[in-house]
Amino acid sequence: MYAPPHFREDRVEVLHAAIRAAPFANLVTMGSEGIDATPLPLMLDVNDGSRGSLIGHVARGNPQWRTTDASHEALAIFSGPDSYISPSFYETKRLTGKVVPTWNYVTVHVRGRISFFQEPEALLGLVRRLTDQHEGERAAPWAVSDAPADFIQSQLRAIVGVRLEITAMTGKWKMSQNRNAADRAGVVAGLRADGGPAAEAVAEAVAAAM
């Protein structure tokens, strides 16, 4: 990923936080049929491997787990908040007119060694962990044990586990760091005036980077 120094983010704790905040990723692999990709939620396990790992599952009917060449690194792409940035936000537009549109965004690219697993107990542990992570803050959290055991076993037979042992992470926070202070303030004000969750999230990120 192209990440100029003023946009690059290498702090591990910041990258981990971004992954946890937006765990739905695109898993990209190289295999016998070329490049393949699957959108799926991945859970970060910081205690698994020297740099941590990502775990999740794909449908058994998805050919990616069969065709992936594990001798090649895989790539998981996480996307954070993003928003269109209008030239009208910039003070520079008023002064010189020398401005163009752009897009602000957060992304984290995680490379690693990929493997797949099918053992029933390992899959059951995986789905329990994923469920607990995403249900934990709900007022009445659902648990895997709420469903009949034979039904869960049938569902486990329809998935294959994925583990990506992390070898490298690169973050890119493109949040108007290349603009002057007045233009960055204009971006924050313009996004907040536009309104909406995405615009507000990017406005907060731009303000944090000022």
Rank of each mutant, 00 (worst) to 15 (best):
S115L: 01
V144H: 09
S154G: 14
G112K: 01
A201S: 15
V58S: 07
K98T: 04
D69K: 15
F24S: 02
R60N: 00
H72W: 03
A207D: 02
A205D: 04
V187M: 03
R184C: 01
A143N: 14
L130H: 13
V108C: 14
V12H: 10
G61V: 10
H6L: 04
S86D: 06
K172G: 05
I55H: 08
V162H: 05
R94T: 03
D183L: 06
A168Y: 09
R192Y: 00
V127Q: 13
I114C: 15
P148H: 11
I166Q: 05
K174L: 01
V108I: 11
A17M: 04
I35H: 09
A74Y: 02
G112A: 10
M30D: 03
P41C: 15
A201N: 10
R20K: 12
Q153T: 13
S50A: 06
H72Q: 14
D10I: 06
A18I: 09
T96M: 02
A37C: 08
E135C: 13
L15Y: 06
E9S: 09
L75P: 07
F117S: 12
A185Q: 11
L130T: 10
N26E: 04
N26K: 09
G161A: 08
S50W: 14
D183C: 04
A205P: 04
N178T: 12
N26W: 04
L44W: 00
G196K: 09
E204S: 14
R184Y: 01
S53M: 00
L27G: 06
G112E: 02
N178S: 07
